[in-house]
Design a protein around this nucleic acid. Structure first.
Length: 878
DNA sequence: GCGGACTGCTTACCT
DNA sequence: ACAGGTAAGCAGTCCGCG
């Protein structure tokens, strides 16, 4: 063992490998991770251990920075539910002969549709796979097969992962602190109750709500007020010799040598290990100060050190480690003869997990669309380490020319270490925002952090709702059952192929308008879900007397007798966000750390709330219920249309509106207040002043406008000049025009501004004609959303540009690649920017692009594009 | 054989 | 594997045109 390795192993305070020859490392890890006493440890993960046939919880103990495993000893077992009584089940030989079957139990469950208790049979098994998951002979498949003609036969809750079932049944609080003693775990809820003053304040805010609603608020507050400890973690990255072909190494084959591995830890260590190879030069790369570097002659020894790290850190963070780094390490180690049982990596089909600690693949987290948009404010557009890190950390990967196999040692080390540093930065920046956000989601979704990071918003909401059902002893219905009872949709979508009609967009009034007030319904859809008691069980409820409680513009009605689960869950989360976390995150009387925590909480809630309506219209969602989605959208249309009508009655002119907003032209304070009061009274909805524009510019196009704030800041929505595929020369000219507009303070100043804008457009046109723009400036930048071969219906321009490349170069362009191309005169009309020359450019096409980009604004200013161009044509003659 | 009207595909955006 | 609505540009098809 090297000296430097010894240094950091002392820091981790426990050994990483078993005594020589005693037992396999994975078994040894499991034993070493057991404890019978912990005063405070945070539950981060759960899984199922097949060998021990029980659920395992993984706790993080902050003072030692260690993970401890707790094996369930409560006797909880996998099960599913069925409508068949035990005596009928006993008549099914295949079931009775099933080796996994343990026993039957008669249990009472509340039927969510009828809201009454029912007897069902619980089929308990020895192991999860016997319930469902075996290719043939799983219990969940045997039962319906045995009774094919029985339409009333039902099997429920058979497709929930076992550890999820365990979490839900036991009310396990993911992400929360626990005490462990005498083999039992105890929630530390009393120690973490918000201070009396705070709890009192929150109680006061919700005093008018029902006691059921207030109970939900208390549950959320308990989960969301509890702080997150500092986490010890390592970020890791590997490099592989691409050797002969310049293809991406295959992690399941793992044919190529691992040449370099680097890692950066939360306790300040930076280390690079390199493999000595023939003909590689030392190099002149400069590693950051304090970086440890070690050369190995033997790849097995190098990998052993890496496996030690993976066996000793509680949290391992990678960027694409699921698909590449950890997978490659595992297969490579096996290929080189290391025993499978000595590799502390657990491989699934899509995930790669760790035997000891927890692996978080940040690629999957940053790839999540909901988080990208709502948690990270669309700061990055592509899902590469380079793009995400540059946007968030302001620092990108190391660039070099040629192949990675040609890099000298120190250059390779610097390159590899940078990737680890960036990955580390993505986990650590902004006071560990990424990790905290993950833990908040784990608490709300009742899901292990590893699953949170790898799954989408529909699974978070599914898990949150399933847990709620189990806690209230409500039977979780199957998707099929919901669909049969509640049916499909009835409205007609505007877009072909969509299931139902969505939001309305108001035709804008073209032109420039000063003093624009934008009002919007705060959290429109969650508010509707709360106010209208929407949920899969309450919509189209079985009660005759509820049928008159109609949803506008649809044939749906909603229950008046029973409070809907979705309505309660989403309603309480929404109110808590709006009335507590959002306001208090800006309250200067709170300490800075509290405000920053509140800001993370409110952003996380926003992610969940924004998706809460959409999931009901998503077929793969566990509680898919199209009428709920359709009703929500329909009420939204009703609310905004009647608000606009009311505004007009009040004498306010409405310039524009989209989904949940109305743009009003110079309304008086009194008029605004009247409208707000009316929506509260008539619709039960909160309408707020969202933005005030000094002036706004509209063309005839929807979802297209410029809004200038009193301080000169500018909102640009939907305009071509802002889109990321627009060539730089157009973006630059467009921004120049925006700069001019931001300085306009009154209608009088517009005259001069128009003159300057004409100048900007004309200048852009002239420069184009004179070939003064470089190819980079002229390039369109388009993301290829799928593999080249999948473009079988049409061949878009960016694909055309790639298709002229030789095959081996084409193969390197896959889904997610960014293509830069210019438009050329000769067939096929496009060429990659890097391969084109300035004289091939199709100037005429580019003039059309100048026109569309600026027309969106010129129209509103009453300026004609041709007039501008005409002038310049005249000048070019002189 | 060619051009205009049309539909469909694709990307990027808005709420 | 949240949803639907809009803009823009191009690809591909159909039809009329003696």
């Amino acid at each position: 063992m090297s000296e430097s390795l010894d240094t950091y192993l002392r820091k981790t305070e426990h050994e990483t490998s078993p005594p020589q020859g005693k037992q396999s490392r994975r078994e040894w890890i499991k034993e070493k991770s057991l404890t019978d006493k912990l005063s405070r440890a945070y539950l981060l993960s759960a899984t199922y251990d097949g060998a021990r046939a029980s659920a395992v919880l993984k706790f993080y103990e902050p003072s030692a920075g260690r993970i401890y495993h707790w094996y369930d000893n409560t006797g909880h077992k996998p099960y599913c539910l069925t409508s068949l009584p035990p005596e009928e089940l006993k008549k099914i030989p295949k079931l009775m002969d099933n080796e996994g079957l343990d026993h039957f139990e008669r249990v009472e469950k509340i039927d969510p549709f009828e809201n009454r208790a029912n007897q069902v049979t619980k089929i308990v098994a020895h192991d999860p796979l016997s319930i469902g998951g075996k290719p043939t002979g799983s219990i969940r498949d045997i039962i319906p097969y045995a009774r094919p003609d029985d339409p009333a036969l039902k099997v429920w809750e058979a497709d929930i992962k076992y550890y999820e079932s365990f979490i839900y049944d036991q009310g396990i609080e993911m992400g929360m602190p626990y005490r462990l003693e005498g083999g039992k775990i105890f929630s530390l809820e009393d120690a973490d109750k918000p201070s009396g003053r705070l709890a009192g304040q929150i109680e006061e805010i919700f005093a008018a709500e029902t006691s059921e609603f207030r109970n939900y608020i208390r549950k959320w507050v308990h989960l969301l007020e509890c702080p997150v400890p500092a986490l010890k973690f390592v970020a890791l990255d590997i490099e592989v010799d691409p050797s002969e072909e310049a293809r991406i190494p295959d992690p399941t084959e793992a044919m190529q040598t691992v040449t370099c591995v680097s890692w950066v830890t939360s306790d300040g260590l930076k280390r690079v290990v390199l493999l000595r190879r023939e003909g590689v030069e030392e190099g002149e790369g400069k590693l950051p100060e304090g970086t440890q570097i070690k050369y190995y002659d033997d790849e097995v020894e190098l990998l052993s050190e890496v496996l030690d790290i993976l066996a000793s850190y509680p949290l391992v963070v990678t960027f694409n480690g699921d698909q590449f780094d950890l997978r490659y390490i595992s297969h490579r180690a096996q290929r080189l003869g290391i025993q499978r049982d000595d590799i502390p990596i657990e491989m699934g089909r899509e995930f790669t997990l760790l035997t000891y600690g927890i692996h978080l693949d940040l690629y999957r987290l940053f790839f999540n669309r909901s988080l990208q948009v709502y948690a990270f404010d669309q700061k990055y557009r592509e899902n590469t380490l380079e793009a995400v890190a540059s946007a968030i950390l302001g620092r990108g990967k190391i660039k070099f020319d040629g192949s990675i196999s040609q890099l000298p040692y120190t250059e390779l080390a610097v390159y590899c270490l940078r990737d680890s540093e960036l990955t580390y930065g993505l986990a650590a920046y902004d006071d560990h925002l990424t990790l905290k956000l993950t833990i908040v989601l784990a608490r709300l979704a009742k899901m292990p952090v590893e699953d949170v990071i790898r799954q989408g918003v529909s699974n978070w909401i599914r898990s949150m709702m399933y847990a709620e059902h189990r806690q209230r002893n409500i039977l979780i219905p199957t998707s099929k059952e919901i669909l049969e009872r509640k049916g499909e949709t009835g409205t007609h979508a505007m877009i072909k192929g969509k299931k139902y009609r969505g939001a309305v967009v108001i035709e804008p009034t073209p032109g420039v308008n000063f003093n624009i007030i934008v009002l919007d319904f705060s959290s429109l859809y969650p508010s509707i879900i709360k106010h209208w008691n929407l949920s899969y069980e309450t919509i189209r409820c079985p009660h005759e007397e509820c049928r008159e409680n109609r949803i506008p513009e649809t044939s749906h009605w909603v229950c008046r007798k029973q409070q809907g689960i979705t309505s309660l869950l989403i309603g309480s989360l929404k109110d808590l966000r709006v009335k507590w976390y959002k306001v208090k995150s800006k309250d200067e009387t709170f300490p800075k750390e509290t405000r920053s925590w509140y800001s993370i909480v409110q952003r996380t809630l926003k992610v969940l709330l924004n998706a809460s309506y959409g999931v009901f219209g998503a077929e793969h969602f566990g509680l898919y219920c199209p009428p709920v989605a359709e009703a929500t959208a329909s009420i939204g249309r009703y609310d905004i249309t009647s608000t606009i009508k009311k505004a007009q009655e009040l004498g306010i002119s409405v310039i524009y509106g989209d989904t949940d907003s109305v743009f009003l032209k110079s309304p008086s304070d009194k008029q605004i207040q009247q409208l707000i009061d009316w929506t509260k009274e008539a619709l039960g909805m909160d309408l707020d002043v969202d933005k005030v524009y000094r002036y706004a510019v509209f063309s005839t196009r929807k979802k297209n406008y410029i809004g200038v704030y009193p301080n000169g800041n500018v909102d640009i929505k939907g305009l071509t000049g802002k889109k990321r595929n627009t060539p730089e020369f157009l973006k630059a000219a467009f921004n120049e025009m925006i700069g001019t507009l931001s300085e306009v303070k009154s209608e009088n100043e517009f005259f001069e501004a128009k003159g300057r804008i004409k100048g900007i457009v004309k200048d852009c046109y002239t420069k184009l004609k004179r070939h003064e723009y470089s190819l980079e400036e002229l390039a369109f930048t388009v993301v290829m959303s799928k593999a080249i071969s999948s473009y079988d219906k049409t061949t878009p321009q960016h694909v055309k540009a790639v298709k002229v490349l030789p095959d081996e170069e084409q193969r390197r362009v896959g889904a997610g690649s960014v293509i830069q191309y210019v438009k050329t005169k000769r067939e096929p009309g496009v060429k990659l920017a890097a391969t084109a020359s300035p004289d091939e450019i199709d100037v005429g096409k580019y003039v059309e692009h100048i026109q569309t980009t600026f027309k969106q604004v010129l129209d509103a200013l009453d300026i004609s594009f041709n007039e501008i161009i005409g002038i310049s044509k005249l000048e070019s003659f002189i």
